[in-house]
């Protein structure tokens, strides 16, 4: 899961099919899909959103969505 990566750790997305439909669409739009390498940049306190980066592109997603994105630690 993306949410299990620590700040600075990298992973490769394996499965995003468990993420909500709308969020999944938006992730695709932003180029985040199966096979994308991501790096966790920062984690907001109190269960707040997570900032992840891929190819120089940063996005913020909620923790509960990050819980549903399966990654393979690199």
């Amino acid at each position: 899961m993306v949410s299990q990566l620590k700040v600075g750790e990298k992973g490769k997305i394996v499965d995003i099919s468990h993420v909500g439909h709308l969020v999944q669409r938006r992730l695709l739009d932003l180029g985040f899909t199966e096979g994308t390498e991501v790096c966790v940049k920062c984690v907001m306190p109190f269960g707040g959103p997570i900032m992840i980066e891929s190819c120089g592109q940063c996005i913020g997603i909620r923790r509960k969505e990050a819980d549903r994105i399966e990654v393979e630690r690199l």
């Binding site: 932003l30 959103p49 940063c58 913020g60």
Partner: peptide
Amino acid sequence: EASLFVIELPP
């Protein structure tokens, strides 16, 4: 319930 938050953080 529906809520969506995915935001692009431009450089």
